[in-house]
């Protein structure tokens, strides 16, 4: 079985997000790291390899600047067998349409039985990349998978939805995104950390995957950001100095807003 786990490099979530006023893009020049939601995707692939799909090969696939080697190594230490990294300056400024086109072109070079995404990126929080890539590859797609079981050539999945869970069966090859409730990612072992660099790393250019500069980047994107602003600060906060009656005032405040009855 061949599994691809698509991962993303994101700005360090503990640092404050900044927007470049000229390009209107997220500033990515600070510390970057592996999107934390993707750790659940890698962990689930590793569990398949340890369980129902012994010998499964796990490729870590990403579209990211060439400088993303630490992110790649982190994903490999977590359990990936090899990496496929599309790194091309022409990709800068790609939106979901352009990025999904690039990812689909990388994924189409191989015959993956299962393509796994994390539920969202911790930077742009879009939740849709799995669906967009599945559409381009004409594969069935299930998002927000909270549990899965391999059953021959199909996957039985429990999908987290607002009202509860859906139980679905999807035939392979397929694309899924896993929820962050699906597992608790393990810490990588020391030998895995030390061995990550020695695993096969494939770095590709746009030409390698049959794309032209105009297919991706700003030119290949369908959304154009005209303005960005920080959310307004909330002005309706109330500050209480405790004179012995603060608890009663807080309770009254919550009752008034029907938060508690």
């Amino acid at each position: 079985m061949k599994i691809a786990v698509c991962v993303k490099e994101v700005p360090d979530p503990t640092a404050e997000k900044r927007i470049d006023p000229d390009t209107k893009r997220l500033v990515r020049s600070g510390e970057n790291t592996l999107n934390r939601y993707d750790r659940h995707a890698i962990e689930e692939a590793v569990r398949l390899r340890e369980g129902a799909a012994p010998g499964a090969e796990i490729a870590v696939v990403l579209v990211a600047p060439a400088s993303a080697s630490r992110t790649v190594d982190k994903a490999l230490a977590q359990g990936g067998d090899r990496s496929v990294h599309l790194a091309d300056d022409g990709l800068s400024g790609s939106d979901i349409v352009a990025t999904s086109r690039a990812l689909a072109a990388v994924l189409a070079r191989d015959s993956y039985d299962l393509i796994v995404f994390g539920q969202q990126g911790s930077d742009a929080e879009c939740y849709v990349m799995a669906s967009a890539v599945a559409e381009r590859l004409a594969r069935p797609c299930v998002t927000q998978v909270a549990a899965l079981a391999l059953d021959g050539s199909s996957l039985k999945v429990k999908r987290q939805v607002e009202t509860g869970y859906e139980t679905l069966e999807v035939s392979l090859p397929a694309v899924i995104s896993v929820s962050d409730a699906i597992n608790e990612p393990r810490y990588p072992s020391l030998p895995a950390i030390m061995g990550a660099k020695r695993k096969p790393h494939e770095v590709l250019s746009l030409a390698d995957v049959g794309l032209a500069a105009g297919d991706v980047g700003v030119d290949g994107s369908r959304t154009h950001v005209s303005a960005l602003s920080k959310p307004p600060t909330r002005g309706d906060s109330v500050k209480l100095e405790d004179d012995g009656t603060a608890a009663e005032k807080i309770l009254a405040f919550l009752v008034e807003r029907k938060v508690v009855a």
Partner: peptide, 9 residues
């Protein structure tokens, strides 16, 4: 890089 990754972990 390996030592940095170890420290982070």
């Amino acid at each position: 890089a390996e030592h940095q990754a170890l420290r982070e972990t």
